[in-house]
Design a protein around this nucleic acid. Structure first.
Lengths: 215, 215
DNA sequence: GTCTATAATACGATAGAC
DNA sequence: GTCTATCGTATTATAGAC
């Protein structure tokens, strides 16, 4: 095989493309850190999945901890960008709430392992880097909608912060436990588009029934 | 100090008490595995907290993996024992549901790190040991209550398995994120008895509003 | 039943060639 | 920008004394 042929075969990740390599490392690291946390993650495992050597990891991110922080930061930036594209104030509290639920679920569905990043961070790091990441955006949008809905009478009186917790737990817990619960109902693929759609519909119905004001 | 004095000082764990040592190891291991998962946990850290040497760990549990399995099994057995003391069929679906919520929350409150054990198991082990542990008990009781409530018309028509997921997520997610969310509201101690009581009341109200049948 | 000492390996990180 | 080779240490596990 000629050198040209070899290069063509590698075209999925061109040699010496810094940006591409960095993305590939972040993708691999996100998986590994989500699965095993900071301590449990293995640099060698990340290197293998990213198809680079561990020396390359250190070249881009210096050490394990910096790589971990970079991995945590990425989803925060992505969510912020998505939320910035919406104007929830222009919607009724009911519609805004349903929009946020759809965003939260579809975002997790696209990255079903991402929530574990934050659980790992919470339990093994006591959330030390959580604050640094300025992760509050989704919480703030949701809080504002809840308060608006209570004010205009479309939601019943609620403890805002507990209700916020419950809404997010309904959306996200589903993805956190799916590997365990797969063993309860092996015939169901909880990550299939159909099941995600059912989850979305049912979650909206559940939450709306829980918080709406009735006569 | 005399040998007698030394022995008295150690009286919290008498020397050469196999049962006590084993419990102490399991307690320490539960903490460590919940915080760091199977790979991330350090045998030396467990040994230090349990106040034994790592050789003692191997004496009782042979290796890391066996210790991990023993740690997973213990909470399952405890929950099964608690549930066996109740006769949910004797209660109305509404009352039975509220009882189960109270049990789930108070159980997590007593061991706020325990849920992370299962999340770790789900994400890093794909729930490989989850099935072995026969952990289904709580799920089964709850499913039965949901189906009974739908049948007698006290609950609205629900997807049983999704609703089960939502109810447990509301009860448990609260504990999983408390270390992270502590940074959002540093003045609140989410594990204080008062906050747990508020969580319990609010969770029951939320869930009941979500699933009750109305005219 | 518990310890000390140590073997054997796994892991993070760096140096230097290309 | 990426690799190979390697250093130093951390970690699991075992052997053998008490």
């Amino acid at each position: 095989m000629s050198r040209l042929g070899k290069r063509a075969a590698k075209s999925v990740r061109p040699v010496r493309d810094a940006a591409a390599t960095q993305q590939q490392i972040l993708d691999a690291a996100e998986q590994e850190f989500a699965h095993h946390g900071l301590k449990g993650a293995r640099m060698s495992a990340i290197a293998q999945v990213a198809q680079v050597t561990s020396a390359t990891l250190h070249y881009y991110f210096e050490n394990k901890e910096n790589l971990y922080k970079a991995v945590l930061q990425r989803p925060v930036d992505e969510v912020q960008e998505i939320l910035a594209q919406h104007d929830f104030d222009a919607l009724s509290p009911e519609e805004a709430l349903k929009q946020i639920i759809r965003i939260a679920i579809s975002n997790e569905a696209a990255n079903p392992q991402r929530q574990m990043l934050w659980f790992q961070e919470s339990s093994q790091n006591q959330g030390a880097y959580f604050k640094e990441c300025n992760v509050l955006t989704l919480h703030e949008y949701l809080l504002k909608v809840l308060e608006r809905g209570m004010k205009d009478g479309s939601f019943r009186p609620l403890k805002p912060f507990l209700t916020l917790t419950y809404i997010l737990s309904i959306c996200l817990f589903y993805f956190t436990v799916h590997e365990n619960w797969r063993h309860l109902t092996p015939e169901i693929d909880r990550l299939s588009p159909e099941m995600i759609e059912e989850h979305t519909k049912e979650a909206i119905a559940f939450i709306w029934a829980a918080i709406q004001q009735r006569d």
